[in-house]
Amino acid sequence: MSSINRVKSELEDLLELEDVEAVVLFRIDGSVIESSFDNNYTSRKIRVLQWCKDNVPRVSQEMRGNNLQKVTYELSDTCILFFAIGKIGILTTLANNTANLSLLAVETKRKASTIENYM
């Protein structure tokens, strides 16, 4: 299996978790490396994804500048987890606002570490 397919498979694992709506692996400049979505495309989700894409460069700069491994945004109806993947990527997980962020963070951290090994 190629590296990108392995990454895709890890993203799909995350998407299977309860309350997760989308998972995107961004490059730190905001371009998408790989992504995985459920089939329920709502305008809210598209709006939040656009927000993520626009803000990944700023968020990744903050993370690198302050040596942060994880940043969480809790919007009114969506939670977003940004996990740093080495110096080049940001694993972004979108979940609805009832998600258990502690449990989600455990698995996302694990996946971030696995994906880093593939890259």
Binding site: E16, L17, L103, V106, R110, S113
Partner: peptide, 14 residues
């Protein structure tokens, strides 16, 4: 169980 861990690994919830 909700999660499981072993040596030298980040625990998993899946």
């Amino acid at each position: 169980f909700p999660a499981i861990g072993v040596q030298n690994e980040v625990p998993t919830t899946q």
